Computed example of a mutant assay.
Amino acid sequence: MMIAASLVGTILIFYASKWVYAHYQKIWLSPLLICPLILVVVLLATHTSYAQYNSGADLLSKLLGPATVAFAVPMYKNYDLLKKNALAIFASLLIGCAVAIISSLVFALLAGLNNEMVNSLVPRSITTPIAMDISNLIGGEPTMTAVFVIVTGLTGSIVGPLVIRIFRFRRAASKGLLLGMGAHGCGTSKAFEFGELEGTFSSLAMIVAALVSIVLSETFFPYLSKILLS
């Protein structure tokens, strides 16, 4: 009974949040922000443990992988455009990944976090399934990494559009790469609200950033970690 309730309840809350957002278009009403908050309130009010809730909702988490793969469809449709901008895309994402790792380490240094928390924080700027794998690989706690990824994604999906508006980004590539690199899956969802091209560039940013981060986590991160945290 709990399995069905948590699964169906999560879906209903998400679509209700999405309906409200579609009608009012306020950043603070984004389903990515409102849905988790409502779920937390419901779980606390009903004294439902996370383990009980996740017994059904875990099915949705397992769909993260197929959902990420589905982003390849718009990428395929716009392959020529992506190929034309390949150098600029790769260079910007390489810099973005390096900045994400460095900023995570600097924050950890300032906050006085232990090594496990540092390793859990570093992959925060890539999509959840891959971030959890990287966290496990470098000695972090995958569950904590998932939390950091969600917080980063939610923050980026709210702050990203403000940055685009303030700095008056016009090109679809600029908007998409910013949201995909800065907020991964959440950012890509937001990018598709701007348009298909923005969503396509964001999808590519999310996937390439994950691949680049795997390489940097095995090479650049250990070296930098010794310098900053020793």
Rank of each mutant, 00 (worst) to 15 (best):
V41G: 08
S92F: 08
A183F: 05
I130Y: 01
V208C: 07
E218G: 11
T188V: 07
S213C: 12
G185P: 00
H23Q: 14
L154S: 03
V69N: 10
L94V: 14
F90R: 02
M1Y: 15
A57N: 13
S189K: 03
T188H: 11
D58H: 13
A98W: 00
Y21T: 05
V212Y: 04
V8I: 15
P31W: 06
M75V: 02
V42F: 11
V149S: 09
S213I: 06
Y76N: 00
R171N: 12
G112K: 10
Q52Y: 07
A91R: 05
V151F: 12
E116L: 11
I126W: 00
Y53N: 06
N119G: 03
L87F: 14
G195A: 07
P222S: 07
T127K: 05
S202I: 02
N114R: 08
L228I: 13
R168K: 15
A172R: 10
G185N: 01
L105N: 06
S55N: 07
M75P: 02
Y21N: 10
L63Q: 05
N119D: 10
A5W: 13
S104K: 04
A131S: 12
L33K: 03
S17C: 14
L154W: 00
V163C: 11
V42Q: 00
L110R: 07
Q25L: 09
K83R: 15
F148E: 01
L154H: 00
A72C: 08
I13K: 03
M1P: 12
A172Q: 12
N85W: 05
S92K: 07
M2H: 13
L177C: 03
E193W: 04
S104A: 15
L216T: 00
K77Y: 02
H23T: 08
N115W: 00
L113I: 02
S17M: 07
V208K: 01
Y53L: 09
D58C: 01
P129L: 08
L179Y: 04
L137C: 05
L7W: 05
L12K: 07
A111T: 08
Y24C: 09
K18S: 14
I166M: 11
C186N: 12
A16Q: 02
M132L: 12
R168L: 06
E196Q: 14
S203Y: 02
L59F: 15
I38N: 07
G160N: 04
G156A: 04
K190C: 04
A88V: 09
S125P: 01
F14K: 08
S120M: 04
A86E: 07
G199P: 09
A51Q: 15
L137T: 09
